[in-house]
Amino acid sequence: MNRTVFFGALTVAGLAAVAASAGTLDDVKARGKLNCGVSTGLVGFAAPDASGRWGGFDVTICRAVAAAVLGDAEAVEFVPTTGKTRFTALASGEVDLLARNTTWTLSRDVDLKFDFVGVNYYDGQGFMVPKALGVSSAKELDGATVCIQTGTTTELNLADFFRSNNMSYEPVPIETNAEAQQQYLAGACDTLTTDASGLAATRAAFENPDDHIVLPEIVSKEPLGPLVRHGDNEWGDIVRWTLNALVSAEELGITSANLAELSGGTDNPEINRILGTEGNMGEMLGLDADWAARAIAVGGNYAEVFETNIGENTPIGLSRGLNALWTDGGLIYSPPFR
């Protein structure tokens, strides 16, 4: 209760002895809200709309977890975090789950003591240039001024790419997407670099998108995924399998349209196990039987979440590419529900 916290802060500043943490799942249930760390505004992934409601690809993951755990997709407190604050927010317990297009790297996993529970989007760093510049490959960018939208591991990849190709460049680091775009359009830099998905979103918002191209080179691997604190494996499992449930749902053809029908029971045992009409998957996770059904009901399966937020029919217009199911030649794969 916020008021109690407020007065607690004003009065005793937490002099009372504090009981040891009982695990994130219990905390979330007791609180009745999931605290989910998201970006401060990246169209398609996490951004508030005109009426202030958060939406986007990462946001849907948060809502799905909230639906699975609490039964209410709206029981999420979105905590906007910057590149600087996201890790502390998670480490200090301010958020239970960080779904902020964060690249899975060894040092973050090991040194910063986080657990990446999976990959919800396979991204890579790309370059966008004006067509008029006549550049068709990133290898021709020797001597260019590069606007970097600081974010995941952008600065490091860029330095590596130019060093390995023995090229020079002048970096201009910029905090927000809007300012990067302003600099780029004014010609203050020759090329804009960030994750390819971000480039697509930025380009889509231009006055003349056709005057700009995204170069074919992808200079880094950016597996983006939700992460939780190291050491609370039960909570990590819940987030991991919520994500897997969305992927499996696509693979098995469970959509938001036929969810209700399939929940009644089907001939396919795996569908039944996911939707809780067979087996005790939910119980193993410490949840109830239809947790996955609720998670899928939020925004549909992985394909539907992708299409509504960042797919080809949205202003961002990303194709599935690497993020197609493994059966379609992509990398999206879920371990079996068994």
């Binding site: 600087k84 502390t88 040194d111 910063l112 600081t150 600065e155 680091p173």
Partner: peptide, 9 residues
């Protein structure tokens, strides 16, 4: 306070 903090945490 920016990129170093960001990358090393």
């Amino acid at each position: 306070g920016g990129i170093t903090l960001n990358q090393t945490g």
